[in-house]
Design a protein around this nucleic acid. Structure first.
Length: 822
DNA sequence: GATGTAGAGCTTTTT
DNA sequence: GCTCTACATC
């Protein structure tokens, strides 16, 4: 990993000014007692300390959100700050929403005046306001990673860069890294080794990419931050307005900030007017921007043990060198954990202590040891999933709500096996951030229609909808339009208005004219040319009009492809989202809607009230907590992930990731793995993760240890060919079965295990309207015969509660379970 | 220009 | 095992 350039800390921050102000502020600070109630001494200090810079080192579960929200409330109550002077930055929209709500509970309605948002949302707000200053307009589009990948892909192809082994993904990743370090195409070209043709090619692609964004009036995710920094540096007067405005800046998850974000914070905390000082005129000060105003007061919260985003440019040094960056900064350490039991914390401490090069920090609690950590080794990923499902059901029967349980995995692909078993076992679940709603093709199409209206310069979006639905506009016509636009010096979008000049057939001319008319009509609804303000419902109206009059909706409805039915439903859902948006944002414009969609990930809108078990990656889990946590796939090559092995600091980051995962658990922690795992269509043997060995064994109660599964000499390969039907495999079948009998505390009967490995059909079956009633006997492919105790639920969600003769009680979704009535 | 089929490549994590 | 792409065919 390349070393990001460490920024020069601006001396203009006038530390003396700051401390004067801090002392004054300290005298005034007398927060109400209720804000400090229930806090331990370090937490109190973190709320009440006043000074230019404060670092709160907050271990997992140490109540940092509580501290942060009370600190904000205390600033307001003591009249040290107006709401509008506060900028609080979090990493995810969900965290921002949560903080807004909790601050609101403390201070009431004035919370509306504060900026509590993610880095990206804050930057969008600034950029929309200032866009005209530097060659953009305020209706710019935000490209998500899919959009920018599409663009990169086209450029890689145009430049034939694949000949040098460049893939769209690698180019995209490299551009993103450079932007996170505030390098642009020019600065890259200056320092690159241009005698290397591959480097020259990359520089050209980078430059083209940036030009394409500019032409499309668009920013990618990384630009949102980097361009804001450039804006501040290029226009000190603009920067000063924000420096004057924000007097208190608070940053959560500081360990995950990258260089660009770090620079942004530094720009914002400089004293207003300080840019003017070091001009070539030396001492000539600009007096309408006096620098006696100090820079904003900075509070950062973080935990270097939870830094898990180095792979995308997060620089751990931002937090580890905070004291050097801000001389005189105060550091407060929060080590008491209010979330987990001591057993869980001991395991977490043991694991993380294997990372050298960290400040020693030990979480502790006074709630007691709690339950042992439960370990389980499955024969296959499905076996493991079945354990998780069974355990969840057992906990649920014992009174634990589903919403208080979560299952974590390292890679998204691991969710499939869990899902399959959960569906069959009728465990209600919800996947966080899996296949995202807004990444579905039909949703992207619909969004492209909206973007084509909002930002006609965005060629990518216009091209996307050109032939969706099919209008007979292919490559040839598309190129003709592009050529015409270039000749006339107009945009691709405007070229559509002149279909007859393109030299294409009459039928196609008509199709183009029709598309142009629909876009124009929708534009009139959502962005009236008369200048009046469109009502918030106009987005829903405009979207409906676009989908109907373009023929898009009709094409799907007419289609015979069964998937298209679901697509129509998804589009209805999108229209519902626009209505919901109108309700929540009475002043919301089309632009506001597009911004929200671009920046809000699916993980953000999770509501825990839904009564489902949450499934997510370990990364998504950060910042969340659950009573019961299942960490699955605790295997070598998965956690730590194989790819991380080659990267400097990789294995350590993986350890922190594992640490984050286990510290999410309040009461119960389950660690599970599988001996074999199918990936790529191939089954391979998995090894227990090294992190398991780092946990003292007395903390883990193994229901089935790796040794139990592995010690029957050479048996693992048997599990691989477990597909054989009922013992017809020489002596192996019965021997295998015999061996299984003495397994401790396993409900599953002998022989059953052999059937489990990878026997799950890829397609979900459909039993149609199979009628079951209490008393019926059924046969299940895996669990054998059993009797139905009762049936609950309705329609497709009817659930049979079955008592199996040998496998015990199970709940099965009747529609999809592999069962037959006897 | 649309549609169907074979083959390659893929899987780290996300605002 | 699945999805996207390229290519062939209509």
């Amino acid at each position: 990993m390349s070393d990001p350039i460490k920024p020069v800390i601006v001396s203009g921050s006038a530390p003396s000014d700051r401390s004067v102000n801090a002392a004054a502020a300290g005298d005034r600070a007398r927060p109400d007692d209720d804000l400090l109630r229930g806090l331990n001494p370090p937490q109190r200090e973190a709320v009440t300390y006043r000074g230019p810079a404060l670092l709160i080192v907050a271990g997992a579960g140490s109540g940092k959100t509580s501290v942060l929200t009370r600190r904000i409330a205390s600033l307001l109550r003591s009249r040290e700050a107006w709401p509008s002077q506060i900028l609080a930055i979090t990493f995810t929209n969900k965290a921002a929403g949560e903080m807004r709500e909790r601050v609101g509970q403390l201070v009431g309605d004035v919370v509306r005046g504060m900026w509590i948002s993610t880095f990206h949302s804050a930057c969008v707000r600034i950029l929309r306001r200032e866009a005209d200053q530097f060659g953009f307009t305020k209706n710019f589009t935000i490209y998500d990673s899919g959009d920018s990948r599409a663009l990169v892909k086209r450029l890689v192809k145009e430049h034939e860069a694949d000949a040098y082994g460049m893939t769209p993904a690698s180019v995209q990743g490299r551009i993103s890294k450079l932007k996170n370090e505030l390098a642009d195409a020019e600065s890259f070209a200056r320092q690159a080794n241009m005698s290397d043709p591959a480097e020259r090619l990359f520089a050209a692609i980078f430059a083209d990419y940036q030009r394409a964004l500019q032409r499309a009036n668009a920013f990618d995710f990384d630009d949102l931050i980097a361009q804001t920094v450039y804006l501040f540096r290029a226009f000190p007067a603009v920067a000063d307005t924000y420096r004057r405005r924000f007097r208190h800046i608070l940053v959560d998850e500081y360990q995950d900030t990258n260089h660009a974000q770090y620079a942004l914070i530094h720009e914002l905390t400089r004293a207003p007017g300080s840019d003017a000082a070091p001009t070539e005129h030396g001492g000539l000060m600009i007096f309408d921007a006096p620098s006696d105003e100090p820079g904003a007061l900075l509070t950062v919260v973080g935990d270097s043990d939870q830094s898990i985003y180095a792979f995308r440019g997060a620089d751990i040094r931002n937090i580890s060198e905070f004291e050097r960056d801000f001389p005189g900064a105060k550091v407060v350490l929060l080590e008491q954990n209010y979330r987990s039991t001591q057993n869980i914390l001991s395991a977490a401490n043991a694991v993380i202590s294997h990372n050298f090069d960290r400040k020693d920090k030990k979480l502790w609690t006074d709630v007691g040891a709690g339950d042992a950590i439960i370990g389980f080794t499955g024969y296959s990923q499905h076996d493991e999933a079945q354990f998780v499902a069974d355990e969840i059901e057992a906990l649920h029967r014992a009174g634990a709500p589903y919403s208080e349980m979560a299952v974590f995995y390292r890679t998204n692909s691991q969710s499939r096996a869990l899902e399959e078993i959960f569906i069959r076992s009728a465990v209600p679940y919800k996947i966080m951030g899996g296949t995202k709603f807004y990444e579905r093709a039909e949703i992207k199409d619909a969004m492209a229609y909206l973007i084509a209206v909002a930002n006609p310069a965005d060629e990518l979006s216009v091209r996307r909808i050109l032939n969706k639905p099919r209008r007979g506009i292919g490559d040839v016509t598309e190129t003709a339009i592009a050529r015409y636009a270039a000749e006339e010096g107009i945009t691709f979008r405007d070229a559509l208005a002149n279909a007859s000049a393109l030299g294409v057939g009459p039928k196609i001319q008509q199709a183009i004219a029709q598309l142009d008319a629909v876009l124009a009509e929708a534009s009139e609804i959502m962005l009236p040319s008369s200048g009046e303000i469109a009502p918030p419902t106009s987005v829903a109206e405009g979207l409906t009009l676009l989908l109907n009059k373009s023929g898009y909706a009709d094409a799907l409805r007419r289609s015979k492809d069964p998937q298209d039915e679901a697509r129509v439903e998804n589009l209805d859902e999108l229209v519902a989202v626009t209505r919901e948006f109108a309700r929540n944002n009475p002043e919301g414009t089309l632009l506001d809607f597009l911004t929200e969609v671009a920046l809000v990930s699916d993980a953000d809108d999770l509501d825990d009230a839904s009564g489902s078990v949450s499934l997510m990656t370990m990364h998504t889990a950060k910042g969340l907590e659950y009573d019961a946590v299942f960490v699955t796939g605790v295997e070598e090559d998965l956690i730590p992930h194989r790819i991380s092995a080659g990267e400097p600091g990789g294995p350590q980051e993986e350890r922190r990731l594992f640490y984050v995962a286990i510290t999410r658990a309040r009461k119960r922690l389950h660690l599970s793995l599988a001996m074999t795992r199918a990936q790529f269509g191939e089954v391979s043997v998995a090894m227990p993760s090294r992190f398991l060995q780092e946990i003292p064994h007395e903390l883990i109660d193994w229901r089935q240890s790796p040794g139990d599964v592995n010690s029957r000499g050479g048996m693992q390969s048997r599990a691989l060919n477990a597909r054989r039907p009922g013992g017809g495999f020489g002596g192996g079948g019965s021997r295998y079965g015999d061996d299984l009998v003495p397994l401790p505390r396993r409900e599953r009967p002998a022989g059953d295990v052999t059937k489990f490995a990878n026997r799950i059909p890829a397609k979900i079956r459909d039993n149609g309207d199979l009628e079951l009633a209490a008393g019926d006997r059924i046969r299940h492919d895996d669990f054998g015969e059993g009797r139905v105790d009762m049936v609950t639920g309705e329609g497709a969600k009817r659930v049979a509660h079955v008592r199996f003769d040998s496998a015990g009680a199970k709940k099965l979704l009747i529609k999809v379970a592999p069962i037959t009535k006897l």
